[in-house]
Design a protein around this nucleic acid. Structure first.
Lengths: 336, 336
DNA sequence: CTGAAAGCGCTAACAC
DNA sequence: GTGTTAGCGCTTTCAG
């Protein structure tokens, strides 16, 4: 097996002590130039790398951050992850990605796992099932830095970054209204998620502003964010079977938007022609779709970058941070 | 900061030695039932978790595996990752995902990073740029278990799992031929990748078998697997500008298939009607596309599972493994 | 300027 | 059955 060189190997080879070698390799300001040179050259020659596990044990940090998302197959999240990596790697941090698949239980397991593996901080977007955030506040109270992105926990006092969901939802709904639709339904993820609440608010606001009455039957939630297609399917069918059938749907999520189109596809095409859709999506393929989908796009990459910058700031701060930011970024509407 | 309980804390609280506590918590067969019970209950009560960093340092293993893929946004890879996780988590292993974005340099950096962080093994699908696999064979020679999936390095002697690319390519090409197309081009990732070689072989074989001459001008490679849209665009334009314009394209990759459609979209629609496409893709959205794309789908989830099973077998094997498997799974053709 | 020694949390001979 | 001790690889007082 794979036995990398250690400090001790260098020390023995050079007739020095491990502490001298250790200092020569990093510290410097009290080591003679000649030993330093000697050590550095030898280390270079044998391609020495300090054992990060030993360093972690000693220094009580792992130079790694944990990320918890619903699923990497979701375009929004894969773009956010790219943003996260771009910052983290620059600063010498490793990124450990985990997926909840919208399950509360998985979220708890992943959280535990990451915490016990000693990540220095956590970047999380809550699962659709998550109502209770006790698993997170427990860790947060013990001092683990956490930053929320996209799907926020209001009750935990830390940095947060999200899209302007209300405004984005407003604009999408407004677009439908201006296009002449009056019976606009709303298909959303689980009702308690921050993004669902905000998007619902934007939808409601747009209806109000244009003098359209809110019809409670028009609002459908998918408790698993459409992770199971049956969920989306039955929600859409319920809408289609209403006596007063809606003529448009504002969909509050990437996976739901696709799920919704899939349901439409499986039905007759007529159902489509008089049913417009606008929805949140970060997919790059929307222009290639058979059905025009007006989309609200979040600045995912940038959100990932900002979340990571915030987290590293918490991690590397000398004194406890007490002022927290709640950053909100604008979405962009793409008409189709 | 976050200071979890240690063995010592338990030992002091219970008036035992750390070794007794350590044994009580795990070993057992020589600890008296009563102390065992005492320790277990107390540990449970204070919610004790062993420090994995210390365990790793001691036991020279981290119970984590590294994964290197091009990008998680690629459906094939996100599905494979789900397969990987499903096995790894079951066996108590943590999964660290990294992306190369098809860059050789990133691949080397990620490999180094994962190795130095002490992953117990590596699951890798080569980047499009990678020609030299010295960075991997160096680690492999030192004893790091590595399993290749999808994009294989022939020269490294270890377990490998891939799709039957040749057969998949053959079937897709054959489908185009039977549909009446005769001037079939081939758009592929970088020429040296195992998947490119195999898919080219399948394409060639189908042409041969149906008595169609191979036209070298019809074969275009994208050295970055279409990671940059310009690359795909210029390749497709070159095909379209040939005096003897092809009437169909067989595309050898997920990203390339989408890139190709995007180029088509940006051109006039007529270019589409007389240009059929068949290609490798694991996207779930193909049925929703404006353009019918006959697709070759790989059993991504299963491949991830098998690769992980193989890797864990290498990692946990008592004696050095010398017999290696080269598993090949069938693809599935979806006509559109 | 350099070395000896302690210790991070855990496991495993080796006593007794 | 349980305690003592050493040691994984590294950093960091504390002495010289």
């Amino acid at each position: 097996m794979f036995e990398p060189a250690t400090l001790k190997d260098i020390a023995i080879a050079l007739g020095l002590s491990t502490s001298t070698v250790s200092r020569a390799l990093r510290d410097t300001y009290e080591i003679s130039p000649k030993t330093k040179k000697l050590v550095l050259e030898y280390a270079e020659k044998i391609n020495y790398r300090p054992n990060p596990i030993a360093q972690s044990l000693k220094e009580r940090r792992t130079k790694s951050i944990g990320v918890i998302v619903s699923e990497v197959a979701n375009q929004y999240f894969s773009q956010a992850i790219n943003g996260i990596e771009s910052i983290a790697y620059d600063k010498g941090y490793h990124v450990i990605i985990t997926q909840t698949h919208e399950s509360y239980e998985r979220e708890m397991i992943n959280t535990q796992h990451l915490a016990s593996r000693g990540v220095d901080g956590l970047l999380i977007s809550l699962s659709a099932e998550t109502k209770d955030t006790g698993h997170l506040s427990a860790l947060h109270d013990k001092g683990l830095p956490i930053v929320f992105f996209d799907r926020i926990a209001e009750e935990i006092h830390t940095h947060k970054i999200s899209a302007n969901n209300e405004k984005g939802a407003f604009e999408a709904t407004e677009h439908l209204i201006r296009a002449g639709y009056k019976k606009i339904a709303h298909l959303s993820s689980s009702a308690h998620l921050s993004i669902s609440i905000e998007r619902l608010r934007g939808y409601t606001k747009a209806l109000n502003q244009y003098g359209i009455a809110l019809n409670p039957d028009y609002i459908k939630n998918c408790p698993h964010g459409g992770m199971f297609q049956e969920e989306t399917e039955s929600a859409v069918l319920e809408l289609l079977n209403l006596k007063e059938k809606p003529d448009a749907i504002f969909v509050a999520g990437d996976r739901l938007s696709m799920g919704c189109l899939t349901v439409f596809k499986s039905l007759n095409v007529d159902a489509l022609n008089d049913m417009a859709i606008a929805g949140f999506s970060n997919s790059d393929m929307l222009d290639l779709l058979k059905y025009p989908l007006t989309s609200v796009r979040q600045p995912a990459f940038e959100m990932g970058q900002i979340a990571t910058t915030m987290l590293l700031q918490l991690i590397e701060s000398k004194r406890p941070v007490t002022e927290f930011e709640n950053k909100v970024l604008d979405t962009k509407l793409f008409l189709r």
